[in-house]
């Protein structure tokens, strides 16, 4: 028996604060992500789930090294992103890529899509100039577009097609790790399914490690191996998809699941209606950040920050499975 291979990506206690700089601003810093640890193996897909303001996009950018963490570390294939030399960083850039949510702002309106797809290989001198065109055409084929599309401009494409182009651009450098930041949220359902199928296909074909950021639990269920649920920058629950989404243990995950509308009447469980809005990330509640909306909160929740034990960060989870 061989030991399990080391994970491709490891994040340890990652925290990110924004703002509160400048001479005249006395605003509190916004803590977008607090003390998140996670790892991602080669070929594995992890879903990052949370509502707006949960810090999921910020976390994704930190894992890619596009945003330095305020605290904590991120290792990619054993290299600490913060300590990488410029040469190492160049190589790392090639090995990890991102696909964006908004198919309209993610492509440069002034350049042909062929030129944009060729950007990565050009920057990293991966393909000789004479073969670039052929590579672009091959990539377009892989995402279901025609070679002639290379000479067109982004506005000539529909949202779904633009998302495919964004995926082709990300794949052009042969990455090992891909962050997909809400890649289907802006698309119509019929097109959403096409793009999800494409991502699933490419993932298995290239052995991509995929971090799939989404607010839609149903979409995560169809694509991911593991899922991490964020609330106000903290991990509430994490674990295999089947376990977290079928038998959620954290009250927030339970509420989130029950709030999602469902096509199947049998699935429409009694709805846990959370009261109020998520608190502002600049003034998070003391103790457990979810306690202000939690249906089972108790006084102790205001005092201690629950640690993530066995994939759940809740003080009451030990009490024989809290079910609200």
């Amino acid at each position: 028996m061989t030991a399990a291979p080391p994970p491709l990506l490891v994040a340890e206690g990652v925290t990110r604060r924004f703002g509160a700089r400048g001479l005249f601003t006395r605003a509190r810093p916004v803590q977008a992500v607090t003390d998140v640890s996670l790892s991602l193996g080669r070929g594995e897909t992890v879903g990052l789930v949370g509502e707006s303001g949960s810090g999921k996009s910020t976390l994704g950018r930190m894992l890619l090294g596009l945003l330095p963490p305020s605290e904590g570390q991120v290792w990619f294939d054993g290299v600490d992103l913060a300590r990488a030399t410029p040469a190492e960083r160049r190589v790392l850039r090639r090995r990890m890529q991102i696909v964006f949510q908004d198919p309209h702002s993610s492509l440069d309106p002034r350049r042909t899509i062929g030129a944009q797809i060729a950007d990565g290989p050009t920057i990293h001198a991966l393909v000789p100039p004479a073969e670039r065109r052929a590579q672009v055409e091959a990539l377009l084929g892989q995402v279901g577009l025609a070679p002639m599309h290379a000479d067109r401009y982004p506005h000539e494409f529909s949202g779904g097609q633009r998302q495919r182009i964004g995926i082709a651009r990300a794949l052009a450098t042969n990455p090992e790790f891909l962050v997909a930041d809400e890649p289907v949220s802006a698309l119509d359902v019929s097109v959403q399914a096409q793009v999800l199928a494409l991502l699933a296909d490419l993932r298995s074909r290239f052995g991509l490690a995929l971090l799939f950021i989404s607010h839609d639990l149903a979409v995560v269920r169809s694509l991911c191996d593991r899922v991490v649920v964020l609330y106000l920058g903290r991990v509430m629950e994490s674990g295999p998809v089947a376990q977290v989404l079928e038998a959620p243990r954290h009250p927030y995950t339970q509420a989130l699941l029950s709030a999602a509308p469902s096509l199947e009447a049998s699935r429409r469980r009694t709805r846990i209606l959370l009261q109020g809005d998520p608190p502002s990330p600049s003034a998070p509640p003391s103790g457990c950040v979810f306690r202000t909306r939690c249906p089972v909160a108790m006084p102790a929740c205001a005092e201690t920050v629950p640690a993530l034990v066995d994939g759940v960060a809740c003080l009451r989870v030990g009490e024989g499975g809290v079910r609200v």
Partner: peptide, 30 residues
């Protein structure tokens, strides 16, 4: 929802993310 009588409705229903974890079917084209 139970008995759609137009292929577009059925296709749209099949495109919605599935609760059993399978990948939904898309509708080709736009």
């Amino acid at each position: 929802f139970a008995r759609p009588l137009h292929p577009y409705t059925s296709a749209l229903l099949a495109s919605a993310p599935r609760e059993d974890g399978g990948l939904p079917d898309g509708i080709p084209g736009t």
